[in-house]
Design a protein around this nucleic acid. Structure first.
Length: 714
RNA sequence: GGGAGAUUAGCUCAGUUGGUAGAGCAACUCGUUUACACCGAGAAGGUCACAGGUUCGAGUCCUGUAUCUCCCACCA
């Protein structure tokens, strides 16, 4: 370091160094635990939450990649055998609908015009392209992922894992086929799970009316069009008003359709709501379906998969959309003088998360995971729900921030059976075959020609739920699986706690009798400066690629981390990223100065008392930062190193030692202090700002030093 | 209806186990041929939402109130 390197005489240019640095890391083999030089501290594993292959990297991905990369780099420098495993998610419904829309727009064709095989080929093509984009974007974030272990939720290995898991659960009686009310998405033409619906508040009307003039009971509904499918009227057993009618059946003509209505008493009815009497439509309401089961009622479906009326005696109704049918029946009620009251109310309507369509409850034969069924599990009788609950209650899995434990328990306690079959083509096909009345479930197809495989595919979360171990080779007993499972930290957004985190806990505890990870670290959402969600329609999206190009990846990473505590939403504005670009410059310039002032430096000397004191103070700071990272307080750790570098190292230490060096007072000690502090700070800064620190490291490291990425933390 | 969170400087947010209120940005004053104006020095700015309580001591713990945000839920 006698001569100041040419590079350092110019201002820092992040763009020009990032690509080369990343290539150096990637070819070095340091991302791969098998070729990592120092691994004396045991294994440390994180699986990357696989991004959907539907789009490009957004600010949330940038955040998740940064947090995990910090943990991984920190542990790698401490000497752990670190594995950060990358992959992508086929995101079944989302991906298929993106491609379907694209094809419809460009060619005016539906998936049925194109056919299953060709459609799947096209979706795969799209997925592959999208995957490449996403992976290259992860590289620009500096993510030190082991690319040699890249996985995809829909590749052959993961497909084997899925089939194996399905078969095991089927044999244990935990997966069953059953008919009941499902959430049907009329736009996506598939069932969806409860978690895939979003309830929206909408203005609605509560209509109070009688089926006919001579019908004795007045009922209320928000969906008059379903009333042509009514098979009962339910009242509360203790309701005096209706007691005399219970058990009787009335045949009436309603809107041109004959219906037969039995009066039943059921405690699910609220006496004080509306008239205290409820028209029961088993085929189009989940509560009504349950009442049908309890009272052995008829069920009559009057709405089809396209949310249109069908099978009715009144031909005018058939083929009408539900909203039009509602208007028709309301008018009929008014004209027939049967409408008693109309009231404006706000109602909660379930809609499909992916397509936005209003969910139509329909009775369907589907595959389910039974979460309440007792079964023998490694010698103990338990349920899936219980397994999921226990490992968190016992703190075998720690959820951060802790408040999400309550959210998790709340979800578990209200959990109903999970509908896992989907009527779309893109996904893992259900490994079940039919021949007449026979059903065959196995990992592979049965022998013989007459078997026909179930047409449905599995919920995408069924495959991503296996992610911590399907990526490590399960069901084979691989070395990877033995070394890296259970994983250490699962870092993801709190919005997928139920979808994904809970399902991983379910599958891992069930199949392996072990937790999938020890710690769950949940980050918040990234919002714009006004606290709104980033969305294309508002136009407030900050693209991480733009920010990275403009200010450098290191600056972006710092902006995402500093002050962003676990679980909290982050309001991100460009100003914040800019501020950390200035910090990059500060580091760069400070390095230039230190190297200039130590050009004649030969070897370290023992420090003067003052210098020794400063070094001791720094060591305390470093210890503090280490403890912050170990305790998942990245927002504090990053702020502390920023603060020390700028306020103490630059503003105080460089300024005072500069004078001493100029005046030639204890020069060697001052030089030793500055160089030592600079080097040690680069180490601490590296997980947060990997590019600039690795670049500078070239100029300050001694000959026998390794690259910074594998330099020792301590 | 149930649950969770937030409320601290003009703005964005820290404040780990209770011990004299912090940072960044913005604004103000002064300075800069000496690593960096992508800078430095300085000053200013807060009844920690409100009301009680526990404590020698509360931004921090407890109770209640208000406002906002989010999640869950089959009042038709």
């Amino acid at each position: 370091m006698k001569q100041l390197p040419e590079q350092l005489t110019k201002p820092f240019d992040a763009q020009s160094v990032e690509k080369n640095i990343y290539e150096m890391w990637e070819t070095s083999g340091y991302f791969n635990p098998d070729t990592l030089p120092r691994t004396d501290k045991g294994s440390y594993t994180i699986v990357l939450p696989p991004p959907n292959v539907t789009g490009t990297l957004h600010a949330g991905h940038a955040l998740t990649a940064t947090i995990q990369d910090i943990f991984i780099r920190f542990k790698r420098m401490q000497g752990y055998k670190t594995l950060w495993l990358p992959g992508t998610d086929h995101a079944a419904i989302a991906t298929q609908s993106v491609v379907e829309k694209k094809i419809y727009k460009e060619e005016g064709k539906t998936r049925h015009d194109i056919g299953r095989e060709e459609m799947l080929r096209r979706i795969n093509e799209f997925a592959l392209e999208s995957q490449n984009t996403i992976l290259s974007q992860l590289r620009t974030m500096g993510a030190s992922l082991d690319w040699s272990r890249l996985a995809f939720t829909l590749d052959d290995k993961r497909n084997l894992a899925v089939r194996t898991m399905f078969k095991k659960m089927y044999d244990d009686g935990l997966i069953y086929r059953g008919e009941r009310i499902v959430n049907w998405d009329p736009k996506g033409q598939t069932t969806i799970s409860d978690d895939e619906t979003i309830t929206e508040e909408r203005a609605g009307k509560l209509y109070t009316f009688k089926y006919s003039k001579d019908f004795p009971i007045t009922i209320s509904t928000t969906r008059p069009e379903t009333k042509v499918g009514d098979t009962a009227v339910a009242v509360h057993p203790e309701d005096e008003r209706y007691r005399t009618y219970v058990g009787k059946t009335f045949d009436v003509e309603f809107a041109g359709c004959p219906i037969s209505v039995k009066i039943i008493a059921d405690t699910a009815v609220e006496k004080d709501f509306g008239t205290g009497a409820l028209g029961v439509t088993p085929a189009h309401s989940a509560i009504d379906w349950d009442m049908k089961e309890r009272h052995n009622l008829e069920s009559r479906q009057v709405i089809n998969e396209y949310a249109k009326m069908y099978g009715l005696k009144n031909e005018e109704l058939n083929g009408k959309k539900v909203t039009d049918a509602r208007e028709y029946i309301v008018n009929w009620l008014r004209e027939s003088d049967l409408m008693i009251h109309e009231e404006d109310i706000v109602q909660n309507i379930p809609t499909a998360q992916r397509t936005g369509a209003v969910v139509e409850p329909l009775p369907k034969l589907q595959w389910w995971v039974n979460v309440n069924k007792e079964f023998k599990h490694f010698g103990k009788t338990t349920t899936l729900k219980q397994l999921m609950r226990d490992v968190v209650a016992s703190h075998e899995i720690e959820i951060l921030p802790g408040r999400f434990e309550k959210v998790y328990f709340n979800w578990i306690d209200n959990l109903r059976d999970w509908c896992i079959s989907r009527q779309i083509w893109y996904g893992h096909r259900i490994p079940v075959w039919y021949k007449g009345d026979e059903i065959y479930c196995d990992i592979n197809a049965p022998k013989g020609n007459d078997w026909k495989q179930d047409e449905d595919t599995l919920d995408t979360w069924f495959s991503s739920g296996l992610w911590t171990f399907s990526t490590l080779g399960w069901p084979s007993e691989t070395q990877d699986f033995k070394t890296f499972h259970p994983t250490n930290v699962l870092e993801t957004g709190h919005d997928i706690l139920f979808f994904w985190v809970a399902r991983m806990i379910l599958f891992s505890t069930y199949a392996l009798n072990t937790v999938p990870f020890k710690t769950v670290y949940l980050h918040g959402l990234i919002r714009d400066t006004q606290g709104r969600k980033m969305s294309k329609s508002i136009g407030n999206v900050l693209d991480p690629r733009d920010l990275s190009h403009k200010y450098g990846t290191d600056a972006l990473r710092m902006a995402l981390i500093v002050g962003n505590g676990a679980g909290n939403d982050l309001k991100l504005g460009e100003d914040k990223v800019k501020a950390y670009k200035l910090f990059s410059n500060k580091i760069w310039n400070a390095t230039r100065f230190v190297l200039e002032r130590t050009a004649d430096f030969t070897s370290p000397v023992s420090l003067t008392k003052d210098d020794e004191e400063e070094y001791t103070k720094w060591q305390a700071i470093k210890k503090d930062i280490t403890s912050d990272i170990e305790n998942y307080r990245l927002h504090l750790a990053s702020e502390k190193i920023y603060d020390y570098f700028w306020k103490t190292f630059c503003d105080v230490l460089i300024e005072t030692r500069k004078t001493r060096i100029l005046e030639n007072k204890d020069t060697a000690s001052a030089q030793t202090l500055l160089l030592t502090l600079l080097r040690e700070q680069l180490v601490v800064l590296h997980p947060f700002m990997p590019f600039i620190t690795e670049e500078i490291w070239k100029y300050v490291k001694s000959e026998h030093d390794n690259e910074l990425i594998i330099s020792s933390w301590d």
